[in-house]
Write a protein that binds this DNA or RNA. Structure first.
Lengths: 148, 148
DNA sequence: ATTTGTGCAAATCGTTTGCATCTGA
DNA sequence: TCAGATGCAAACGATTTGCACAAAT
């Protein structure tokens, strides 16, 4: 049972308490793996991760967590508003730790998502939604390629 | 060998010749299944189809074509610029027969993609792309939900 | 005749689920 | 204690691929 290692890792972190509160506020029990994943996600500035990538990171950080739990956790965080799922291409889902209103660059060759600085991009002249519908969100993806 | 049926279907179509030229111009051999799928796609105004949906349509229209060929054909059409793949959510890919510059509504509850009238939506104040990159395309997805 | 496309079934990839076990309050 | 969380492996849906066969030029 390697949970002892995890405890050491988790306790060593100065922001464990705040993360615990963050999770509790979101109605999620601050379990070891949720705390560890939250730490990976939120203590390094804005990130755009896939489930697979986060799982690998966790394994490397010697955090024993299964891929299924990573998926569960990402979706729970997403629903709790701690993360935002970004749909850039049909295959992988990316999760953005920046939940504020902003848009994205997508670099196709590298499969990489980057935030567009918040102040930029204005969408105007939006059409009326069809009958009985309202706008939930407007997503802008600026697709980039290497300059020719 | 039910190919005889297909010939009848294909020959009966008044636009088979034009479609053939369209395919040839795109560098694609005008095979029976490509002609048939092109006919389903391009003779009914603008459409947003998934591979699965187009395959079902083909089967109903008694066009013998495999799902694998539908996928191949859609991707070939996409690369040839006859179609445009639209990434709305991570799971299914939608192909839009409207290749002109325009944006999309996405109705989450129904998993349906609709064109935004071309004249609408202006994106301004686009930021500079990172070093050595240029903008390939800007996609705007207006996500809709039922009005509360 | 040669090249290119097609069908099928099996493989793959990302993701989800069922269920037995474990853990946090 | 005991609802809720986790791990594992199996299930899953969308898509791709390998290869023998068929059709187009």
């Amino acid at each position: 049972m390697p949970y002892a290692d995890m405890d050491k890792l988790a306790e060593a972190e100065c922001d464990t308490v705040q993360l615990g509160d963050k999770l509790r506020d979101a109605g999620l029990r601050p379990t070891r793996q949720r705390l560890s994943l939250a730490h990976l996600l939120f203590s390094k500035g804005n990130r755009h991760v896939s489930a697979e990538a986060l799982h690998e990171e966790a394994i490397i950080a010697r955090i024993p967590v299964s891929l299924a739990t990573v998926y569960n956790t990402l979706h729970q965080f997403n629903e709790a508003g701690l993360l935002r799922a970004v749909a850039v291409e049909s295959s992988k889902t990316y999760f953005d730790t920046n939940t504020s209103d902003h848009h994205h660059f997508f670099i196709e060759e590298e499969n990489r998502v980057v935030d567009v600085p918040a102040s930029h991009i204005t969408v105007s002249d939006l059409p009326e939604p069809p009958q009985g519908m309202e706008v939930a969100r407007v997503d802008v993806i600026v697709r980039l390629r290497a300059k020719s």
